[in-house]
C-alpha cells in the first residue's frame, strides 16, 4: 500500500511534464497554419482526445471479453474505468469539435462522420453506465454490462461506415476557404500532434487508473459492510438463542 502512491505520483509528474511540453509545442513552437490561422491549434487537443476515446472503446471490448472468459472482477473494474473515462473524453471531443467548427465552418454541428460516430458511441456508453447504475451490484451486473460493452464495440465500425455513407449522401452545409480541412499533417504539425497524442494517452492511463482504484475501494467497502452485517447477524442470532434459553425457565417459573 505504501509503494502505490509513489508510482501514482511519478506517473502524475510524468503526465504533467508531457502536458507542459505539449502546451509549449502547441502554443509557442509549432508555426501557425496558413489557412485557418490560430484556431487550427485546436487540432492538437481535439484529435488526441478523440484518439483516447477510441482507445477507451478497445479497452472496454478487451476487458469485457476477458471478464466473460475469466470472471475475474478486475476486468470488470477495468471496463468501468474505461467506459467512464471514455465518456468524459468523448464528451470533450464533441465539445471541442463543435467549438472548432463554429469559427471555421460557420456552423456548430455538421454531419461529419467522425463527429456523428462519436456522438452515437457517447450515447451507447452513457447507456452502459446508466445500466450499471440501475442494476443491483453482483455477478449478474458484471456479466450483463460486459455484454452491453461488447455490443457497443462491435457496433463501432458499422456506425462509422454508416456515418461515412451519410456524409457522402448529405454534403455538409459548409462552404468557403476553410471548408476543406485537409491540411497536411507532417513536419512540425505532425510532430506536435504525435507528442500531444502521447501526452493525452498518458493522461488517459492516469485518469482511468484512478477510476479503477476508486472502483476497487467501492468493492472493498461493500465487502466490509457485508462482513459487518454478517457479524452483527451472527451476534444477534447467538444472543437471541441464549436469551431464549435463559428466558424459558424464567417464563416457566
Amino acid at each position: 500500500m505504501a509503494a502505490l502512491p509513489k508510482i501514482r505520483l511519478i506517473w502524475l509528474g510524468f503526465t504533467a511534464a508531457l502536458m507542459a511540453l505539449t502546451l509549449w509545442m502547441v502554443f509557442l513552437w509549432v508555426p501557425t497554419e496558413i489557412n485557418q490561422g490560430n484556431i487550427q491549434r485546436a487540432l492538437y487537443f481535439h484529435v488526441p482526445v478523440a484518439w483516447t476515446a477510441m482507445v477507451a472503446i478497445v479497452l472496454i471490448a478487451v476487458a469485457s471479453v476477458a471478464y466473460l472468459k475469466t470472471r475475474d472482477e478486475k476486468w470488470d473494474r477495468l471496463a468501468v474505468a474505461g467506459a467512464e473515462t471514455g465518456v468524459i473524453f468523448a464528451a470533450l471531443m464533441l465539445i471541442t469539435g463543435m467549438v472548432w467548427a463554429k469559427p471555421v465552418w460557420g456552423v456548430w454541428w455538421t454531419g461529419e462522420a467522425k463527429l456523428t460516430t462519436t456522438l452515437i458511441l457517447f450515447f451507447i456508453y452513457v447507456a452502459y453506465l446508466m445500466f450499471r447504475a440501475y442494476f443491483p451490484p453482483g455477478e449478474q451486473r458484471r456479466r450483463l454490462a460486459a455484454i452491453i460493452g461488447l455490443i457497443g464495440a462491435i457496433d463501432t465500425p458499422i456506425i462509422y461506415y454508416g456515418a461515412q455513407l451519410w456524409e457522402r449522401a448529405h454534403p455538409s452545409a459548409v462552404v468557403g476557404p476553410y471548408s476543406n480541412n485537409d491540411s497536411s499533417v507532417d513536419g512540425p504539425v505532425g510532430l506536435t500532434l504525435l507528442v500531444a497524442t502521447i501526452a493525452f494517452s498518458v493522461l488517459f492511463v492516469y485518469v482511468a487508473s484512478e477510476r479503477y482504484r476508486l472502483r476497487k475501494q467501492e468493492d472493498e467497502v461493500m465487502a466490509l459492510r457485508r462482513a459487518i452485517s454478517l457479524q452483527a447477524l451472527r451476534v444477534a442470532t447467538t444472543s437471541d438463542s441464549t436469551e431464549s434459553i435463559s428466558s424459558a425457565p424464567a417464563g416457566g417459573a
Partner: peptide
C-alpha cells in the same frame, strides 16, 4: 427506460440505411 437507451443508439446505422 433502459431498453430504448440501449437499443436506439445501437441501431442508428440500420435506421440510417
Amino acid at each position: 427506460i433502459m431498453l430504448p437507451l440501449l437499443f436506439l443508439p445501437t441501431s442508428v446505422p440500420l435506421i440510417m440505411a
